[in-house]
Every structure is written in C-alpha cells, then in structure tokens.
Simulated scan of single mutants.
Amino acid sequence: MEKKLIVSLSPHVHSGDSIQKNMYGVLIALVPAFIASLAFYGLGALVVTATSVIACMLFEWVIAKYILRKNTNSICDGSAAITGVLLAFNLPSNLPIWIIIIGALFAIGVGKMSFGGLGNNPFNPALAGRVFLLLSFPVQMTTWPVVGQLGSYVDVETAATPLAIMKRIIHNDPNTTLADLPSSLDLFIGNNPGCIGEISAVALLIGLVYMLWRKIITWHIPVSILGTVFIFSGIMYFVNPEVYVSPVIQLLSGGLMLGAIFMATDYVTSPMSKKGMLIYGVAIGILTVVIRLFGAYPEGMSFAILIMNAFTPLINMYCKPKRFGEVAKKK
C-alpha cells in the first residue's frame, strides 16, 4: 500500500506556547504581590482574593454550562483565576464579600462571557468589574485600611491613600501638605494604604522580570506606560514642585505598576504589533497623568486602560504586524 506524506499549510513553526501555559505563568508572576498583600493586610487580603477567585471561576462555569451551552473546560485554562486575582488586587482589603461577588459577576458575566468568552472580550474583565464597583459603591471602594491590621477584616482603621493626598494638595487643601505623603521607600516596599495588590512596587517589578524572562509579555507596553508617566509628571513637577509630586512618587503610587505590568498587557485587549503597543502604552500613560492631575478621581489607571482597550482594534488596523514570510518591497 502506497503511503502519502500529507503536509499542512505553512507556517510550520511552533513555539511551544499555549493559553494555559501563559495564564499560569502570569499567576506565578502575581505570587510576590499576593505575598506582599498578606504581609501588609493579612486576613483581609486572603478573604478578598479567595472570594474573588472562587466567584469568578464559579460564574464562568455556570454561564458556560447553563447559559451559553458550551465547553466548560475554560475554567481550567487559568483565565478566570487571573480575572479573579486581578479584580481582588484592585479592591480594598475590607470590602464586604457580597460586593466582591457582585464585582466578579459583572467581570465574568458582562465583561467576558457576554462577548463569547476568552479571546472575544474588548475590555479587560477585571478592570470592567473594578470600575463597575467603583461607580456603584463609591464609599466602600474608597475606604482604605491602614496596613498592619493582619487579623482584622471589616472593623479596621482607615486612612487616605497617597493619590488621595496628592489630589488634596492639588485642590489646595490647607490641612494637607507634601509632608503627609509616605516616603519613596515605603511606597516601593508597600507600607501605605491602597488596593491590596497595588501597594508593593518591588513585588510587582519581580513579577515583571519573571514574565519578561519567560517571554510571556514584551517590554513595549510596560516601559512605554511607565516612561510616559515619568516624563509627563516630571514636566509638571518641574513647572510647580509645590503642587505636583516628583515623577518617582507618581510611578510608585496607586495602581500604575499593577496596571502597566499585568492589566494593560492583556493579550486580548492590547495591540498585536510592537509599534501599536508603544502607541497604546504612551496613550495610557498620558491619560493616567491627565486624570490623576486634572480629573475628578485620584486614580486614572483603570479608566485609561479601558479607554485604550476601545481603541485597540483601530490601532491594530493601522499598525498591522508583518505577515509571515513577507518580503519588503524595494523603493
């Protein structure tokens, strides 16, 4: 019997990557930030993170099985778990469980599964859930526990975040000065109030190094965001150092590191080409500083990423990656 060699269509290169491998790689990169959250917030960080992850995975399974009537194995690929962790990392450590569950339902049900599941959502699901909770429960979402209350969850002492202090200074609050801000070292380590996953810059940078080493992401989006924020806020600081804080403080405050490293780099909602990534990152950096300095909210990272998520298809249209095997035409 004659045997035929059947060759599939090109390209014939396989990198060995998979959705599951990359998703679990991101989860590993988030471990240092989770450890830092436990070190500074203790029980509260554990309760919020566990509730968010379990709720996100449960909602994805229920919606996939009983509403969309499709394969329910997607909860094992790590994407629902990442959504749960990132949603939790954007929440205060004393947020009531029922509010966390509502946020998880919106993130998975509206932000992800309503568009068809992984790969089809135009907006980052975790950020969609976070912004929904911020608009729906502004008081609970802007009440920040003081770090070090490891055994407490709901009944905790609260304080203003560094970004809230900056906003008061910009608005000429007579009771607030630059001296009220935490030191750069405290911001770098994580000894300051804020969302549980955003406080420790060093933990987030460890995650960035790991993902770059494993080639889960490229440097283009994080570096373009952080570089743009540093330059833009540096110009504002040079113009009026009595009102605007140094660019280093801007980089280490709020959700900038978390957003630039783990949320803006989401495969589905970010551009495909390197040129598109740079445009996307620069725009996020500019929007973040504009909202922080001139907007109504102290933090602008979440809004900036969601706004640029909407522009990602347009960026992909005008910054198309080079086709495999394509040869540039000579002029």
Results as ranks from 00 to 15, higher is better:
residue 4 K to V: 14
residue 6 I to K: 09
residue 8 S to F: 12
residue 9 L to Y: 08
residue 13 V to L: 14
residue 16 G to F: 12
residue 19 I to T: 15
residue 20 Q to F: 09
residue 25 G to T: 09
residue 26 V to C: 07
residue 27 L to D: 05
residue 32 P to N: 06
residue 34 F to E: 02
residue 37 S to H: 05
residue 39 A to K: 03
residue 41 Y to A: 12
residue 44 G to E: 02
residue 44 G to F: 03
residue 45 A to L: 01
residue 49 T to H: 00
residue 49 T to Q: 00
residue 61 W to E: 04
residue 62 V to R: 00
residue 64 A to L: 12
residue 65 K to L: 10
residue 65 K to W: 05
residue 71 N to F: 08
residue 71 N to H: 13
residue 72 T to W: 13
residue 76 C to H: 11
residue 77 D to R: 01
residue 82 I to T: 13
residue 84 G to A: 11
residue 85 V to L: 05
residue 86 L to M: 12
residue 87 L to P: 07
residue 92 P to H: 05
residue 92 P to V: 05
residue 93 S to V: 02
residue 93 S to W: 02
residue 95 L to N: 03
residue 101 I to G: 07
residue 105 L to N: 00
residue 109 G to Q: 07
residue 109 G to V: 09
residue 111 G to H: 10
residue 113 M to I: 11
residue 114 S to G: 04
residue 123 F to P: 07
residue 123 F to E: 02
residue 131 V to R: 07
residue 133 L to D: 02
residue 134 L to I: 11
residue 134 L to C: 09
residue 134 L to M: 15
residue 136 S to R: 00
residue 142 T to C: 01
residue 143 T to L: 07
residue 144 W to N: 02
residue 144 W to C: 05
residue 147 V to R: 00
residue 151 G to V: 04
residue 153 Y to M: 10
residue 157 E to N: 13
residue 160 A to Q: 13
residue 160 A to S: 13
residue 162 P to G: 12
residue 164 A to L: 10
residue 164 A to W: 06
residue 165 I to T: 15
residue 167 K to V: 06
residue 168 R to Y: 14
residue 173 D to R: 03
residue 174 P to G: 10
residue 175 N to G: 12
residue 175 N to M: 13
residue 175 N to Y: 12
residue 176 T to K: 04
residue 176 T to Q: 10
residue 180 D to K: 06
residue 180 D to P: 03
residue 183 S to Q: 09
residue 183 S to N: 10
residue 186 D to T: 06
residue 189 I to M: 13
residue 189 I to P: 03
residue 194 G to F: 09
residue 196 I to S: 02
residue 196 I to Q: 01
residue 199 I to P: 04
residue 213 W to S: 11
residue 214 R to S: 07
residue 215 K to Q: 15
residue 223 V to Y: 11
residue 224 S to L: 09
residue 228 T to D: 10
residue 232 F to T: 12
residue 236 M to K: 04
residue 236 M to Q: 12
residue 239 V to E: 05
residue 249 I to Q: 12
residue 253 S to V: 11
residue 255 G to D: 11
residue 256 L to N: 05
residue 262 F to Q: 08
residue 262 F to L: 09
residue 267 Y to C: 05
residue 268 V to N: 01
residue 268 V to R: 00
residue 271 P to F: 03
residue 272 M to L: 15
residue 273 S to W: 10
residue 274 K to S: 13
residue 275 K to P: 00
residue 279 I to C: 14
residue 279 I to H: 05
residue 287 L to A: 13
residue 287 L to F: 15
residue 290 V to C: 10
residue 292 R to M: 12
residue 295 G to Y: 11
residue 297 Y to K: 00
residue 300 G to W: 06
residue 302 S to P: 02
residue 303 F to C: 10
residue 303 F to P: 01
residue 308 M to A: 08
residue 313 P to S: 06
residue 313 P to F: 03
residue 317 M to A: 14
residue 319 C to R: 02
residue 321 P to Q: 06
residue 323 R to T: 10
residue 330 K to Q: 13
